[in-house]
């Protein structure tokens, strides 16, 4: 479980996060949504320790990350898997080398053991027979799968994804969403996803947090989002005609 209390973060004069509190449970897929510039990326980067909070605490199963010793921090880092918006695969390494990299750095497994684990996770993300390809030879969806494979290869307790669907076609986006949710359920991972893809919200949003101007403006599930009368959420989620119609249909059905 990840518990965020009163998180503040800014850059110089610009205050990006203004007192966010939230709880993310193990085995649950939580989505952070909000307009561009609402603080989603800064929030997720604060969770993974790339930004240090100015105020507030982030605790991982009761351990506050800013109070870690170097050794504890190192240990905690290995409990984290992160899927970056642009996949962030190492260009000069093949798919196999990318996924094997954390194992080489942090385990004492033999080459055969590492290869077995790499093949297992690549199979898990439905990406077999691409071991020797370079990231540049893969499609966007395949790169995302490699990034997910690399993020889960160390069996993380916490998985973070920054806009995992950006740049993907709707069909591939749903495949990636479902994959993340399956992995979350399967390994009981605490998963936090940044997105502004409404399909993701409807598909996998067990818990949704809506950020506006650096503050938590709303929290609920994908079902609650149909019923909410929070003006900011309604304006953001139902800005497209398609989702407006879906919502109307849902509410009519409930009447």
């Amino acid at each position: 479980m990840i518990e965020v209390k009163n998180l503040h973060k800014g850059f110089g004069e610009v205050k990006v996060l203004k007192g966010i509190s939230a709880t993310f449970l193990a085995g649950e897929t939580s989505l952070i949504i909000g307009e561009s510039g609402s603080g989603k990326t800064v929030f997720i980067k604060s969770l993974i320790g790339l930004h240090t909070p100015e105020e507030g605490t982030i605790s991982f199963d009761g351990r506050i990350n800013t109070k870690f010793s170097e050794k504890e921090k190192q240990q905690w880092r290995q409990e984290i898997g992160m899927v970056f918006q642009g996949s962030a695969l190492f260009d000069s390494q093949t798919v196999e080398e990318n996924v094997m990299f954390p194992l080489k750095m942090f385990t004492k497994q033999t080459q055969e053991e590492m290869l077995e684990r790499v093949n297992f996770v690549l199979k898990r993300v439905n990406l077999e027979n691409s071991n020797k390809k370079l990231p540049a030879e893969l499609s966007g969806g395949m790169q995302k799968r490699v990034a997910i494979a690399r993020a889960i290869v160390m069996n993380p307790k916490y998985l973070f994804c920054d806009e995992p669907n950006s740049g993907l076609d709707p069909r591939t986006a749903i495949v990636i969403d479902n994959l993340i949710q399956e992995i979350t359920d399967e390994y009981n991972i605490t998963t936090v996803i940044n997105t502004h893809d409404m399909n993701s919200v409807m598909e996998i949003g067990e818990k949704i947090i809506f950020l506006k101007d650096g503050r938590k403006a709303w929290e609920g599930s994908s079902n609650d989002i149909f019923k909410t009368d929070n003006e900011a959420v309604v304006n953001f989620v139902y800005s497209s005609n398609l989702f407006k119609k879906v919502r109307d249909a849902y509410l009519n059905e409930k009447k």
């Binding site: 980067k45 320790g49 290995q78 992160m82 970056f84 962030a88 990299f101």
Partner: peptide, 8 residues
Amino acid sequence: DALEVMGI
């Protein structure tokens, strides 16, 4: 960032 998140 990916390297640093891994603890490298």
